[in-house]
Design a protein around this nucleic acid. Sequence first.
DNA 1: CGTTTTTGACCCGCGC
DNA 2: GCGCGGGTCAAAAACG
Length: 162
Amino acid sequence: MTEKNPRTANSSSPESDFSNQQWPFELSDYLSFDDNEWLQNNPTTESLVFQANEVAGGSHIEGSSSSIRDTNNMNMSGNENWKKEVKERVAFKTKSLIEILDDGYRWRKYGKKMVKNSPNPRNYYRCSVEGCPVKKRVERDNNDSSYVITTYEGMHTHPNSC
DNA sequence: CGTTTTTGACCCGCGC
DNA sequence: GCGCGGGTCAAAAACG
């Protein structure tokens, strides 16, 4: 990075932060997004947007986006893990040139990997706040480089950066 | 100066 | 048993 990070000190003010970006939605709307609503608004998105209670060792996303559908189809054979911990998993498919979508939290990149089926790199982000098990996975669409698939994992256990 | 980014290496699960 | 795929960590560098 060198000039693609218009944030850093303004993380405390997500409002002004967003004014700088070309977000098609408002921060509040973005946070209260309903997976069901998204499906209605984006019928072409298939099952890319979903909210599932994942379990450790449940179904890993292997392959391309087509495999993501498998994640929705959890296996009943290991449903006993459900009582363990509920992990919220939300995937967003947004048409934007920027992949670093600021949601008011601080994200620290902890890894970059190349998908074997695409020349698109996959970025792994994590909440900089300690105690926040929230993880973010950002990947570009294979078919539409203009689209960005952002997958949020976990819930924020700390107040906003404000 | 602190924080974050970056890249490579390492680790884990499972498939064959 | 080894290889593959994916995911994570870690040390150093870069940036504000």
